Computed example of a mutant assay.
Amino acid sequence: MRTDRDYTIALLIDADNISPIYLDIIINEANKHGKITNARVYGDWSQERLKTWRSKAEKFSLTFVQQYANLSNKGNATDFTLVIDAMDLLYSNKVNAFCIVSSDSDFTKLIIRLKEDNMYLIGMGESKTPEVLVNSYERFYYIDQILEALEPKKERKDKNGNSLIPKKETIIKEVKKIIEDNLEDDGWAYWSIVADQLRKKSPGFDPVNYGSKLKALNFFKTFKDFEVKNEDKVAYIRIKHS
């Protein structure tokens, strides 16, 4: 059975869409899933505005892919280049996972196409990322929320209509439903099953989005709604009844 750490990953970053302040987070989270064997960042490197990106990316030996702003819609030009490279990597059979870093919904069709070839898909973007893109991935990281959690002294941004992070109450309701659907005879549910189904229903879920640095199981353990136990290194969870 393949685990998150078994993957060989192609990391593709849309520099026109993502700030370089997130690069350390991007590399750290991607590395949790396996080995990054291809790391590319896309943009028009002749532009002064990407100067900071270049200095940050050199730290991690990322490959700079040049896309001149010679079309009326420069953003789409960069998207096309990234999509072509992704398909080339797919057919090379050298990777079995992709991590695409962008908040641009134009990549949704690419993600669906890669999934058809059994690629493991990791996404990263800001809270403004459209839900249709977030839900296309197996796993999605809201990198702006991770940055805020790592820098608690930094003032948190006000929530706005573009934020698609589920409310805490919504996540708790989802977990309760998953537990109820997977109860064993003793009234407990295997945490591994609950966690897997939650990841599929809400790819963007991460305790860090709610100001917690705990792992998911310990995060839910803090709520009065749940009970958790471990037996022979197997974790279980159930709804706490009064």
Rank of each mutant, 00 (worst) to 15 (best):
T3P: 07
D4W: 13
D6S: 10
Y7A: 01
T8G: 11
T8W: 10
A10D: 00
L12E: 00
L12T: 00
I13M: 00
S19Y: 03
S19H: 04
I25W: 02
I25C: 05
I25F: 01
A30K: 03
N31A: 10
N31G: 13
H33F: 11
G34M: 01
I36A: 06
I36C: 09
I36G: 06
I36Y: 04
N38Q: 15
Y42D: 03
Y42V: 00
W53H: 10
R54S: 13
F60W: 00
F60T: 09
T63V: 13
F64C: 03
F64D: 03
V65I: 14
Q66P: 09
Q66D: 08
Q66I: 07
Q67R: 05
Y68N: 12
Y68L: 11
Y68Q: 11
Y68M: 06
L71M: 12
L71K: 15
S72D: 15
N73M: 06
G75T: 13
N76A: 12
T78G: 04
L82K: 07
L82T: 13
L89M: 03
Y91S: 10
N93Q: 14
K94R: 14
N96T: 07
N96L: 08
A97C: 08
F98V: 05
C99T: 12
V101K: 08
V101S: 01
D104M: 01
S105V: 04
D106Y: 03
T108F: 05
T108R: 11
I112D: 14
R113M: 03
R113A: 00
L114R: 04
K115H: 06
E116Y: 05
D117L: 02
D117T: 11
N118E: 15
N118V: 08
M119Y: 12
L121T: 08
I122T: 10
G123F: 07
M124I: 03
M124V: 10
M124D: 02
S127N: 01
K128H: 07
K128F: 09
V132C: 11
V134I: 14
N135D: 09
R139S: 10
F140N: 04
Y141D: 09
A149R: 08
L150S: 15
L150R: 09
P152A: 02
K153A: 08
E155G: 09
K157R: 10
G161C: 12
N162C: 05
N162E: 12
S163I: 13
S163Y: 00
K168R: 10
E169M: 03
K173W: 07
V175K: 00
K176C: 11
K177V: 13
K177Q: 15
I179W: 01
E180S: 09
D185A: 14
D186A: 00
W188A: 00
Y190D: 12
S192T: 12
I193T: 15
D196K: 12
D196E: 14
D196W: 04
R199T: 10
S202E: 15
G204R: 08
V208F: 01
N209Y: 01
L214I: 03
N218V: 08
T222F: 01
T222C: 09
T222M: 08
K224P: 10
D225I: 09
E231I: 15
K233H: 02
V234A: 12
I237G: 03
R238G: 02
S242N: 14
